[in-house]
Every structure is written in structure tokens, then in C-alpha cells.
Write a protein that binds this DNA or RNA. Structure first.
Length: 306
DNA sequence: GGCGTCACGGTTGAC
DNA sequence: TCGTCAACCGTGACG
């Protein structure tokens, strides 16, 4: 009985492994025909809109500290001199090689505390104007000049959250979200979470190159230094059953949509595409980076991290 | 020739 | 689920 049970487990495992292999081969076959990377004038490969890999950024700083001129760094690493200049300027200013936060929205100013105070002001003086509330928020120190809501925001709060809570319950329009949504988001001048590694679907940043960590002054891609600009696209590890290289952030919904739109186009001589990547678990993340990058023959592989 | 700056087209993630 | 918006990115051109 136990042997039969074990046999079933083995068979199930084999089925999963075969499925895994098939799906992996499928994505690799797709990626061979896709071109995501672009080539700059120096022959280097880059992904438009995405930061350079940390290894390259680190190398730029290292070479600069060795006294190599920026123009030589640019040529050697095949990165535009504007980019080298920007990275070195950022490093000199912040001490970090990490790129800034990409995406996201400004921190919200209509925190529960602000709404509560507005409600108090309104209760005390039902005829109070929005601009008066704004002044009182500043005067009472509830907000400062950087995060005080606009008059229109206060009017909206009065209309939707305070007025709506008494007269128009069930209002589901934007701006009437329950206060719980703010509870876990401390409002500050920073848009960033306390700590955040940096990675995206093109660069396996969670796999630091061998040179990483050898310099105390250089931040680890996995553990950015405190007090430095951090990306908002941080996603804490949710699984420990995959290799660190696979514990990367998934593409955004926009990227997934774009990729799907592309991959659904049948390749010449290729069978019709399989179902969307959404259902494929982490398999797509096992891409060989040269495939993922859509490397063309003759391209410099320098951006590829292993 | 080297370098700083900026417009541009792109990606990203919160809303 | 999708669109919008505002942040960022690197490139390439200009001075």
C-alpha cells in the first residue's frame, strides 16, 4: 500500500517535471524570436526605460575610483557617457549606485489623521470653508506645507468622506476608500519602503555578481543601504522554494499585457502560442538572460548577469 | 575630445 | 481589470 502511494507520488512528480520542462522549452523557443534589448551607438545592449544592471553600475563607480576617465568608462563598458555621468553624479551625491524609485504615486496626504481633524473642524464649525480648514491644519501642526491637502482635496473629503458618511453612505467613488487602506502606510516625505532590493524582469538583481560585496562602501543588491533612494517596486520574498535568482519581482501588469500581446502573435513557422504567461508560474523566470534580452548575434553580452 | 545637461521615448507601480 | 499619472530609466544630441 505504501509502495503504491510512493509510486503515485513519483509519477505525479515526473508529470510535474515533464510539464515544467515542456513549458520551459516553450518559453525559450518563444524568447529566441523576441527582441527586447536595444543596442546603443557603442554596441552595448540596454533596455529602454530600465536601469542598467547593478554590476554595470558598480563597475562604473569602481573604474571611476581607479581614476579611469568617464569617457573611457563609457567606451569600455559601452554605456553612453551621459549615463556614466549621471550614475557617477548620483553616487557622489548619495553614495549609492542604486537607481531611484521607478513608478508608483506620490504619498497621499489625506491620511486618516488629517481626515479626522477635518471632521473635527467641520463638527465644530459646520460653516467653515475649505481654505480655513487648510489653514487650521497648518496652524495646528497636523500638516506641514509639504503635505497639507489642497483646498480641492479638503472639499472632496468634506463631500465624500465626511458629508458622504452622514448622508451618502455607499459611495464607492474614488477617494471614498475606507481608512484601513492608509493604516499600513506611514506618511512621510519618502515614497519608498524602509528597505527594498532592486530588480526587475530583465535584470536578476537578486543574484549579485562575484564582485558585489567585496567593497564595503558598495551596497548589496539584496540589501540596499539605509538612507538611500530605494525603489518602490520592492516585493518581499514570498517563497523559499525557488532559487534566489528566481525570487525576483514579476513583471508589472502592464508588462505582462505587453508581453502577452507580443507572444500571442504567431511566429513564422511556429505553432499557435500556448496560454498566457500568467498561468505559467515561475517558469518564465528561468529564461536564459541572453534569450530574455533578445540578444542579436554580435551583441555585447556584457549586461548579462549570471 | 571630454563633459554636463536635457529632450525623448520607454518602463514601472500606485491609484 | 484597465487606464491614468508621475516618478524613474538610458540614449543621443547639443553646447
Amino acid at each position: 500500500m505504501t509502495d503504491l502511494y510512493n509510486l503515485e507520488i513519483i509519477l505525479a512528480t515526473l508529470c510535474i517535471q515533464n510539464l515544467y520542462i515542456l513549458l520551459t522549452e516553450y518559453f525559450l523557443s518563444i524568447s529566441e524570436h523576441q527582441t527586447y534589448g536595444e543596442v546603443n551607438q557603442l554596441g552595448g545592449v540596454f533596455v529602454n526605460g530600465r536601469p542598467l544592471p547593478n554590476a554595470i553600475r558598480l563597475r562604473i563607480v569602481e573604474l571611476a575610483q581607479l581614476g579611469v576617465r568617464p569617457c573611457d568608462i563609457s567606451r569600455q563598458l559601452r554605456v553612453s557617457h551621459g549615463c556614466v555621468s549621471k550614475i557617477l553624479a548620483r553616487y557622489n551625491e548619495t553614495g549609492s549606485i542604486l537607481p531611484g524609485a521607478i513608478g508608483g504615486s506620490k504619498p497621499r496626504v489625506t491620511t486618516p489623521n488629517v481626515v479626522k481633524h477635518i471632521k473635527v473642524y467641520k463638527d465644530r464649525d459646520p460653516g467653515i470653508f475649505a481654505w480655513e480648514i487648510r489653514d487650521k491644519l497648518l496652524a495646528d501642526g497636523v500638516c506641514d506645507k509639504y503635505n497639507v491637502p489642497s483646498v480641492s482635496s479638503i472639499s472632496r473629503i468634506l463631500r465624500n468622506k465626511i458629508g458622504g458618511s452622514t448622508g451618502s453612505s455607499g459611495n464607492s467613488s474614488p477617494g471614498t476608500s475606507p481608512p484601513q487602506q492608509f493604516d499600513s502606510k506611514p506618511i512621510s516625505g519618502s515614497m519608498h519602503p524602509p528597505t527594498a532590493p532592486i530588480y526587475n524582469q530583465f535584470y536578476p538583481y537578486t543574484c549579485p555578481p562575484p564582485s558585489m560585496g567585496m567593497h564595503g562602501s558598495f551596497p548589496s543588491p539584496q540589501m540596499p543601504p539605509q538612507g538611500h533612494a530605494l525603489p518602490m517596486n520592492y516585493k518581499p520574498p514570498v517563497s523559499s522554494c525557488v532559487s534566489p535568482c528566481m525570487m525576483r519581482a514579476w513583471p508589472s501588469s502592464h508588462s505582462v499585457t505587453d508581453i502577452l500581446a507580443f507572444s500571442r502573435q504567431p511566429m513564422p513557422g511556429q505553432p499557435a502560442p500556448m496560454p498566457s504567461h500568467d498561468n505559467m508560474g515561475g517558469i518564465a523566470q528561468t529564461y536564459n538572460m541572453s534569450n530574455y534580452y533578445g540578444m542579436k548575434p554580435g551583441m555585447s553580452p556584457m549586461y548579462l548577469q549570471s
